[in-house]
Design a binder for these strands. Structure first.
Lengths: 152, 152
DNA sequence: TAGAACCCTGGAGTGCGCTCCAAGCAAGCA
DNA sequence: TGCTTGCTTGGAGCGCACTCCAGGGTTCTA
């Protein structure tokens, strides 16, 4: 159970495996392939690397990036965390913990649990908003019917 | 059923009435009172007004803002919409429709329905993220137990 | 009547998360 | 061989949603 395995190569951790991936060993994607697979821009991918949100990406003999399946898995997790509104700085912190090795397990655990609480709170907030929207929507639906019947 | 009534004075539209409000007629809050009631900063309140997200706020004889209950209701709605991630520009658009009068009912209706769909999609995304987090959290919980038993 | 606390304005500044640019190297192909 | 397309870098720029500032007027309390 290595640090790489637990956070980056088990694709069950970041959603179902995406279709068009190459088998391990031949998984060397160019940046534009990763753009197509993730929906991120090449700018963003390079920026993620610069700020330490990505591990060091393999390079071809001429220095071009060659992403691997585990990098895609990591990007999938980052994408999920981004959806929660987690600041990029916090994700960088998590990435640093992963790089630091196994002794950071508990810290990562705590960080994930806090994030989980945040997500639950966000969902509750959104459901509150949904209730407000539904009230207003039904108000406008009634108003629309009233106007329609006035016209007839 | 006036335009003001439908979107700003019916407090049932923006959540339960907050406790410490004054009765209509004596509802003239200073900006710092609104700060205390909403959690927004005075800067933000003035900025909302400048960009057209607030209606024109009543002024005292010396030009100081005096907010009314309907303004608080509107701010409560804005707060809810903000939680959905709706861009301020879209909220300004909605505010403009409200100011424009009753003939914008259907447009407001459509806007709210779209927002509702967005919120539902956001909730679904967050629930997907929650599933990922739960998988990772239980992984770390197991890893923690394994490390603990190794040590004994 | 003084002093503290509050409020006003237009405009400039901030932090975040990208997004783009310039200048150059590399790879595939007619 | 030239042409097109793609990739590289550090650093500058952008849009959003605030956030703050300077310089001045107002209101409240003692």
């Amino acid at each position: 159970m290595t640090e790489t395995t637990d956070t980056r190569t088990t694709e069950t951790c970041a959603g179902p495996p995406q279709g068009n991936r190459r088998p391990d060993g031949e998984d060397r994607y160019t940046i534009s392939e990763v753009v197509a697979l993730t929906g991120l821009t090449a700018h963003t991918l390079r920026w993620y690397e610069r700020i330490g949100l990505m591990p060091h990406i393999d390079r071809s003999h001429t220095g071009q990036r060659r992403y691997r399946n585990r990098d895609l898995d990591w990007l999938a997790l980052v994408g999920k965390l981004r959806l929660t509104g987690m600041p990029v700085a916090d994700m960088v912190r998590y990435a640093e913990l992963v790089r630091a090795g196994d002794h950071t397990y508990t810290e990562r655990f705590e960080l994930l649990k806090e994030t989980r609480e945040d997500v639950l709170a966000r969902i509750a907030e959104l459901q509150g908003t949904l209730a407000v929207l539904d009230r207003k929507i039904s108000f406008y639906a009634d108003a629309g019917r009233a106007l329609a019947s006035e016209r007839t």
